[in-house]
Each structure stands twice: as structure tokens, then as C-alpha cells.
Simulated scan of single mutants.
Amino acid sequence: MNVVILSRQQAVERVGYSLGLDGSGLNGELSPALVGQALRRATSILAPCARYELERSVRQTLQPLGSPGDVVGPMVQDVLESLIVYRDLLEMRSTADEVWASAEVTIRPAAPSFVKREDGSIAVLGTAGDVITPIPEDLPARLVHRGALRLLVPTSAEPLAPRLQEFGLVELSEKAWLRLPRVEPAGNYVEEWHRRLREAPIGNRPEGLLICKPTRRGTLYRDRWNPAEVGETGLFVARRPQRFGANLWCLVDLQPNSTARIVDLFSTGDTLRSCDVAWQIQMALDARAGLAQAFRCRPNGDRSTIDFFSPIPSWAERRLFLVGRRQAGTGCLYSYEMATTAADGERRFLRESLWLVEQN
């Protein structure tokens, strides 16, 4: 048996090839596409698994392949978040009969499926066991990796959807994939959650409680999070620590004498993630207080860019993905670039569904 010594770049290319990527296009460096494929394969092996277990497994596997200046951990976290947002991987609450589940909220692979986009391309979602990208053998050459996402780009009016259906993939309707909540006034949304909170018992404030404080428009999102002060009262989106895992999202009504009512945030049937519920409540609280969160639209000919300064729920990101492309933010948290003809509808959607205001 011959032993071949590989350079780091050669090792990256071989790993990429084993994960279904064109190794020659990786330039010998870790990329979101490679990390995304590694996360899909690891999920098919480990699921149901806790998020931190999946991140740790992939991080430890890929760390030796990173260049000296690479920070593999944050890349794994960012790519996993994208896969969950676009429902390529599913974040779900465990049930009582799942003896193998290692946490209350676990990650699972989505079933092989696809969603059509307005530009004619098709987003491929899910895995099929060891087959990370379950598409017909003659189509991988037409597969484009946009970050961690996989898009099939048809030639002219080629009917790709029937071929994928014949191969066993399920076409998801826009309604089924987006899972948009109903449109309602911000005050009504806050009151519904406040009603649930009033039914909760009063107890001592948990130690280490972080609350998202009201602030003037334009303040960075991360700067809004601070420890609850002694004597502070009111209704807040909060995060409370738990013994293991990430802090839990919750809604708190801080009472005098260091007491509080608390409800943890999640939706029935896993239709919404806890953070999605929390971000929507915070947007409603801000709008009700006359400090609605803002977005900015920058038209440039036939293309427009919408900038966001705070995170938005994953269902809103999925809608924007159907018409546009997410980009790193310039003077904002992140942006979506799209055709100017589509931007008007998305701006209206943001105003009506998330109570945002447009910044001039």
C-alpha cells in the first residue's frame, strides 16, 4: 500500500470531492459550500442531535483543514444557521418517546424536496441518507452552490421540476415552505402573548437574565441586550440561562421585589423557532411603543438592495430568498439584493407583517 502525503489544499479538495463538490473549484480552502455539505452528512448520521453536538462534530472534523488564520467554529455556526433558516435542516422539539434524543430541541435532516424561485432556479433541500444531494446523475453539473445553499439552474424553459418529482423529491408549495403567520396589528400580537404571560405564576427572577431593552431607533441590536437591573419592571423579550446549552428565549413581565412572570417562547407544532417568535414579539413591542424597527431600500437601476439592522424571523428570510439573494451587510446587519420590480412587494410585506418602517 502506498502512502501519499497531501498538502492541506489537496486534502480540502479531496474532502470536497467526497462530499459531492467539484474539488477543483474550492481553491484548496474551506468554503460555506463544503461546510454545508459536511453538516448535511453529519446530520444524517447523528440525528436527532443537539445543535451543539452537530457543530462540535463538524468543527473538530474540519479544523485541521483550515488555514492558520481560519476560525472554523464561526463558519460552522453561520452555515448551520442558514441551513435551518431555509429548512434544509430542521430544528424540532423532541417528543417524550424519543429515547435517542439528546436535547429538548434537536436537529434533523429534511426530506428530499425542492422549491421553485421566481428567477426559474430551484432550491434543492434535504438529504437521502448517504446521498447528500439527491438529484438525477446528469444534473450535478448544473448545480450551483450559493454559500451553503444548492440551486439548480435550468437552461431556457427546461422542465426540471417533473424530473425531480420522478426521482422522488417532493415539490414544496410556497405556502408550505414559507409558513407565514397571519397578518395582524402589532398591538394585537403583543396582547396575545401578554395574555399567556398573565396566566403564568409569579416567581423569583432567574439569575443571569438578559433583557432586550427599548431604545432609540438606530441602536445596534447587540447593544440592546443587558442584564435586568434591580427594581426594573415591565414587559421584555429575554434570555435565561440553563444548565446545558444556549440560553432559552422567553418573555418576562418583571415585577417589583425581584419577582417575575416568565413564559418560554416556542410555537405549537414547531412551525416557528423560538428566536423567530422572540424577534417578532420585539418588533411588535417596538412598533407599539412608537419606536418601530427600520429597514432601508437602496435602488440601483433594475436591482435594489434591502438592508436590515436587526434579525428578522426565518419565515421572512425564506420569502426574501424566493426573489433575492442574501449578502453581507454594509453599514447594517445583512442585506437582500433583488430585482427592483420585486422590491416594492417585499417592502410592503415588511411593513405589514413585521411592522417595520422604511428609513430614508
Rank of each mutant, 00 (worst) to 15 (best):
V4G: 02
S7V: 02
R14P: 03
D22G: 07
S24T: 11
G28A: 08
E29W: 03
L30H: 01
L30P: 01
L30E: 01
Q37H: 12
A38V: 05
L39D: 01
R41L: 15
T43R: 08
S44C: 15
S44K: 11
I45T: 14
P48F: 04
A50R: 13
Q60H: 00
T61Q: 01
L62Q: 00
L62C: 00
P68C: 03
Q77F: 05
E81R: 13
E81M: 11
L83S: 06
R87S: 08
D88A: 09
L90K: 06
E91K: 13
E91P: 08
S102T: 15
E104Y: 11
K116Y: 04
S121A: 05
T127W: 08
G129Q: 06
G129P: 02
R146Q: 14
P154D: 07
A157H: 13
A161F: 07
A161S: 15
A161M: 07
L164C: 05
Q165P: 02
G168F: 08
E174M: 09
R179M: 06
G187L: 12
N188K: 13
V190L: 10
P201F: 05
R205W: 08
L210G: 06
P214G: 03
P214Q: 02
T219R: 12
R222T: 08
R222P: 02
D223M: 08
D223V: 00
V230A: 15
V230K: 14
V230Y: 13
G234K: 12
L235A: 07
P241T: 02
V252I: 01
V252F: 00
D253Q: 07
Q255D: 08
S258T: 09
R261P: 02
T271N: 12
C275W: 11
Q282V: 01
A284P: 01
A289M: 06
A292K: 06
Q293G: 08
F295M: 05
R296G: 04
R296W: 07
R298E: 15
R298P: 00
F309M: 09
W315T: 00
W315F: 13
R325H: 10
R326I: 09
T330E: 15
L333W: 09
Y334T: 10
S335Q: 12
Y336P: 04
Y336R: 10
T340Y: 06
T341F: 11
R347N: 10
R348W: 10
S353Y: 04
V357Q: 07
